[in-house]
Simulated assay, not measured.
Amino acid sequence: MSIIIDKSTRLIVQGITGRDGLFHAKMMKEYGTEVVGGTSPGKGGTDVDGIPVFNTMYEAVEQTKANTSIIFVPARFAADAIMEAADAGIRLIVCIAEGIPTLDVIKANRFAEQKGTMLIGPNCPGLISPGKSMVGILPGQVFKEGNVGIISRSGTLTYEIVYHLTANGMGQSTAIGIGGDPVVGVHFLQLLEMFEKDSETEAIVLIGEIGGDAEEKAAEYIRNHVTKPVVAFIAGQSAPPNKQMGHAGAIISGSSGSAKEKIAALEAVGIHVAKEPSDIPQLLSNHFT
């Protein structure tokens, strides 16, 4: 099995006629994702790479029965794109766009929740269920179908750790990049619950980074609700206080949000934390021997 996306996923690409939208629409289609349409105001009735283009999400959903969208529009339009998709009946929205004002994200995420829509992102690489579907900008060739679930705040670290897993014969059920902004949609707790319930996910890899308290909350949730093996990696272990490192959410404020605190919280509940990304396969194998 997998979580969130599979072969039943029917995808609309919002902003499909832009450079990034078009490139990744083709990549997702080539991977095997059912890309049923795209949107670009004023270009409805045309097509790109055989994918029909619609003026609005309402038209797209009505004519294609899509259930998922991915957003490649500029940051200033992204919140409206999220809300339009949710209002049109889309149940999963993946927002790749970055640089969206935090207040816009809060408004759009609240609207999506009211509509019963799951938002992943913004400023994220998306997700993949290897061998089934990819909704995002991930390098599909490094993933392999298997039983390790991955939740990550970092796109590039996801690819690196997956590379090491695949090279060691450890495939993935679903890998999700949740985004590195201070405010994002779906987070660790919801995804941990989904992986815990997924019968074919046998272990979970948690990839965190400095800033915020998401990893500390995840540790407490794992202590009380997760029975499957969990291993982790925390990026930014040498980051200085009050210095943003990479993502907008990766900043240590005062004494909170440091890698040391996060590692301590995870280890306190029995989670092994890798010193290097390449250590992850060995830590996982220890749970199965």
Rank of each mutant, 00 (worst) to 15 (best):
N109Q: 10
G89E: 05
P122T: 10
E113T: 11
I71F: 00
G50I: 13
E62Y: 12
P41F: 11
F72L: 03
M83C: 13
M57L: 13
D47W: 03
P101G: 07
Y58A: 15
I71L: 08
V105W: 00
Y58W: 12
V36G: 03
V73T: 15
S40W: 11
T68E: 06
N109S: 11
L92V: 10
V94G: 02
T64S: 11
P52H: 03
V61N: 03
A78G: 05
K107Y: 12
T64N: 11
D80P: 00
M83L: 10
L92K: 06
V53D: 02
P41G: 05
N123H: 05
Q114F: 10
T117I: 11
G50P: 13
V105Y: 00
I106G: 02
G37V: 13
A97F: 00
N67A: 04
E98N: 05
P52R: 02
G99M: 09
A86Q: 08
L127F: 08
S69M: 11
E84H: 08
V73F: 00
D47I: 03
A81P: 13
D47M: 11
I96Q: 01
A112R: 07
Q114I: 07
M118P: 10
S40C: 10
I128M: 03
Q63N: 12
T46D: 11
I128A: 02
I93Q: 07
P41S: 09
D80I: 14
E62M: 14
Q114H: 12
I71Q: 03
I120W: 08
V94N: 00
K115A: 06
I51D: 04
A108N: 07
N67W: 00
A86F: 02
L103R: 13
T102S: 11
I82H: 00
G99L: 10
V73M: 01
F77W: 07
G45C: 08
G116T: 05
R76E: 14
I51W: 06
D49S: 15
F111D: 14
A97L: 04
P52F: 02
G45V: 12
I90D: 09
I70M: 09
A88R: 02
F72H: 01
Q114T: 14
I93P: 02
G116Q: 04
M118Y: 13
G89S: 04
L103F: 14
T39C: 09
N123M: 09
A60F: 11
P52D: 05
